[in-house]
Design a protein around this nucleic acid. Structure first.
Lengths: 245, 245
DNA sequence: AAAAACATGTTGTCAGACAACCTGTTCTTG
DNA sequence: CAAGAACAGGTTGTCTGACAACATGTTTTT
């Protein structure tokens, strides 16, 4: 969020590529639950890589819960309800409809966080929220790209502060994860969208959220947050409709 | 859900052990964001295992987003806000308060799913929901452990059917994941709790959810689901208070 | 002084070997 | 003949050593 010029274009490693191919085969149904994977030797031959590479790939998928392996027998695709992690793939930001699903998820979790925050917020949470809120109110109107970028990050921090104030670590973690993925895939769209929006509208929506959490009004916090996110989603999707995404 | 006698006591593999140790060091703060991990050679020496084992462990943590590595330089702990997966560890079911957090998360996501389900349900979704609902209504009252077990699984399937009917794959996946973890860690408590509860109460709550989704009433579905889950949580926590968890 | 070459350390990949384990087959033994 | 033991083959788990690819700091050359 703070550092700039990061994360661009790291070269893909072989294990990652293979893990993705296997993962796709599983998700696409080419490999069904209970199926036995080809042996590591066959896979390494088929992909033309060393067995260690295949093993690292399988190790990742085991960690994710997609695969279980038994020594001396083989590796098997597990039932989908044995997955032990939740992740959002990069492919989920391609189409407008898929993007909408991710935003629905974020909306749901942040609304619930806001409701909990109204009940559980500590004084540190409150001062953090207030500080970010003031910063948003006092920020210059988005004219340049850079200014808008800073505003966006402040708003994102405000969201995360709500998640933290909920007192529920799981909400913080999942919201943070989704925020990260959204930022990775949609940052430029979000910024352009923000530049084309009436910022005072957003300010008033966020003020309402802040106000309700401040007053420890759980249900109102939930509704204000949901309302804000649903509007934000509409704005973003309208924008995403026109262009790159 | 259907198969019995599973999942007990598989021997831990070395990479998993090492991944967990490193993961703990990161979560406990012994390794902070930006820190450089010891080299693979030093780690393999320190743990007394081969470098391939260390590499598999690191590969898992990279996959999780906890670590980034640069060829020729080293491996580094990433900021917590770069994690690309969401997972709930087994430690989150130990204490009553931690369990409550997991249940809050499930409540939030299932409520949102129900609201979406009321809008997006297909006819297949409806028949699946109706069938499960009828099955719950007609189920014998929980007397024996086995009967209660079957009822619990039917109710769980009903929840998952709601998630599926939302039409949002992410809700289905995260709800399924949480359900799996809850079932792994709390199944026996949940069954005993169900045996000690007035099942007609639960039946009427679920009927209300079913009814509202059937009538495509989004907000009522949301509220009915939240209400049901909050009551369920209370019942379960009261029970968990007394005993094993 | 700047650029090129080199040295060193680290991760990424490769190849081969053996250990641990599972399964089915064959052999032994009662 | 049947039950158990021994064996054989295949697969995953671990180990070892080597080299390639890359980054960084040092030395040498121009």
């Amino acid at each position: 969020m703070s550092q700039i010029y990061e994360k661009i274009a790291r070269p893909r490693r072989l294990p990652d590529e293979i893990a993705e191919k296997l993962s796709n085969d599983i998700n696409s149904g080419a490999l069904k639950a209970g199926d036995k994977l080809p042996t590591e030797q066959k896979l390494s031959l088929a992909f033309g890589v060393a067995r260690t590479v295949v093993r690292e790939a399988i190790s990742q998928l085991k960690f994710e819960g997609l695969i279980q392996s038994k020594q001396g027998v083989g590796a098997f695709v597990t039932n989908p309800d044995q997955k032990s992690v939740f992740r959002i793939g990069s492919s989920c930001f391609k189409k407008r409809k898929e993007l909408a699903m991710v935003l629905q998820l974020q909306t749901s979790n942040l609304s619930a966080s806001a409701a909990l925050a109204a009940e559980n917020r500590t004084s540190e949470d409150l001062s953090a929220l207030t500080e970010l809120h003031e910063s948003i109110l006092n920020s210059p109107d988005p004219s340049s790209y850079e200014i808008t970028e800073a505003l966006l990050d402040t708003i994102r921090s405000f969201y995360l502060a709500i998640a933290k104030a909920s007192g529920n670590i799981h909400f913080l973690e999942i919201i943070r994860m989704i925020d990260t993925r959204l930022n990775e895939n949609l940052r430029s769209v979000a910024i352009k969208n923000l530049m084309a929006t009436d910022v005072n509208l957003i300010r008033s929506e966020l003020t309402s959220i802040h106000e309700q959490i401040l007053q420890a009004n759980s249900e109102s916090s939930r509704l204000a947050t949901r309302s804000h996110f649903e509007k934000s989603t509409e704005r973003l999707l309208a924008r995403a409709d026109e262009r790159d995404v």
